[in-house]
Amino acid sequence: MYIKTIEPDDASGEIAALYDAERASMGQVMEATQCWSARPDIIVPIENLLHQIRDEFSLGLLNFRLITFVAARFVPSSYCSHVYFRALSSMIGRDETLAVHRDYRNAGLSEQQVEMLAYAEQISRDASKITETDIKRLRDVGFSDLNIADIALAASFRNFMSRYFDAVGATVEAEFLDADPEIRQELAVGRK
């Protein structure tokens, strides 16, 4: 990490509680969490926003993770690609997740999921180019305005988070790296 952060053993108050919760659920405090502690006034609101977007996501956890994984590829963020490859693999399988990474349009997803991920890709590449036609395409496959807003929030939030992680030098933890060096290389879409 490029910046000084609050180490888990030095944390107190709300940050210690947040770190303890992450240790309980993940077995460690991830650099992605710790890097926010350089701004102690922001770490808890950022974590709360992540949980509010993810836990209340109108399209379910699987679609949230699909969006996050695809957005990470186009940010590009190696950190988030590795972490969400692992998370998504546990839900749909390693081979299926690799197929999504390589070409979500031909990965056996539903038409609705493909349109959702195309929108997430567009947000990550250049949201200024999104038009009413893009939104109409989402509505045409059955998405409500709430769903569209949630897709935009998930993709935009991942862009924000991933860019911050790279900007402060967060590095992916070893347990999120695939055992196959070729797959690790493939998922290293940004910083190596």
Rank of each mutant, 00 (worst) to 15 (best):
Y19W: 00
N63T: 02
A72F: 05
E22H: 06
G13A: 05
G169S: 05
G169I: 00
T33A: 09
F157Y: 02
V141S: 11
V168H: 07
V29W: 05
D134F: 03
R94V: 05
A24V: 08
R139W: 05
I148D: 04
A155E: 01
K136S: 10
C80H: 12
F157L: 03
D9M: 15
Q112Y: 14
L109K: 05
R139Y: 02
V100T: 05
L50Q: 08
L50P: 10
Y2D: 13
A24I: 03
L138A: 00
S37A: 05
D41I: 07
Q185H: 08
R23K: 10
G142F: 06
A118R: 09
R102K: 09
F160E: 12
Q122N: 10
D150Y: 00
V114F: 12
R73M: 13
Q28H: 11
L146V: 11
R163F: 04
V114N: 12
N106Q: 13
V29N: 02
N48C: 11
T131P: 07
Y19A: 01
I123A: 07
L98P: 15
S156K: 01
P181L: 11
S162T: 06
A16F: 08
S12M: 03
A32I: 09
D145K: 01
N63H: 07
N48T: 12
H101C: 00
V172E: 03
A16H: 07
S25D: 04
R139G: 05
M1T: 12
R191V: 10
L18A: 03
V172K: 07
L50K: 14
F57V: 07
S156N: 07
D126K: 07
D140M: 14
Q113Y: 14
D9T: 08
A170E: 00
A167H: 04
G60T: 03
